[in-house]
Amino acid sequence: MIPAPFEYVRASSVDEAVALLGEHGDDAKLLAGGHSLLPLMKLRLATPAVLVDIGRLRDLSYVEERHDHVAVGGLTRHRDLESSPVLAQHVPLLAAAAHSIGDPQVRHRGTIGGSLAHGDPASDVPAVLLATRATVVARGPDGERAIAADDFFEGFLETALRPDEVLTEVRIPKLTGVPWSFQKFTRRAQDWAIVGVALVRNGSSGVGLVNMGSRPLRAVAVEDALASGASVGEAAALAAEGADPPADLHAAPEYRAHLARVLVRRALEEATAR
């Protein structure tokens, strides 16, 4: 399978990428690691006229401890997340979710920014951002703005990013020593999650769901139940409340709802045992 023809431009800075996006408008797409975009282009589900390659902006690849949060550059690869000592100490949930993505070859290329900008409800990292109340930073022609994870995922493959913005950074509150769990149910090792759960068990627990709707979701009913002292069983029973799980060849919505309840219970049990 061969992508439709396109013009290829390499950006040497974020500002240049923003300018190129402004110039080409909706015809242009950013290319980072290419592991969401290129498969779509090969299937001709995406046919951008211009690809703006930001894959060489190495200064956007970092994991840094900063005061009360960890800052992750938009071009940091999944491989660098799973092996980051900073994340291992302060946000092990993100390292675990990154480790569960695809396979080693995919993790050598795919980036956190590319995955988030793709806005796929079946991706793992969005659930982590929702559970941890993370912030996404985007740079456009008018400078930088911070977007709360809750406001970032707007619909199926739709995010709050404007056509001329580059996702430059993700900021995750430090969760040093906070119990957590990442659960992912797949039929085959390298598959997308049929359902996944990202959990942080702190004062106000966070629960993010993978593949339980047209966009990445928080299990708000579970969070509220935990906040008011519900048991693990009572809270987990609410895992599919308000969700709208998709039907596909892997699972019916009812099966996904069941899986969500089971996986939230397992996540709560695992976090409690940590």
Binding site: Y8, L31, L38, D53, Q105, Q190
Partner: peptide
């Protein structure tokens, strides 16, 4: 598979495994 699933096209790019069906030559 030509869909970045099977790994038959795996090569090393700067010493790391990648699926060469999902990388552009220009990259």
């Amino acid at each position: 598979c030509d869909t970045s699933s099977c790994g038959a096209c795996t090569v090393l790019l700067d010493g790391e495994s990648v699926k060469s069906c999902t990388v552009l030559a220009v990259q």
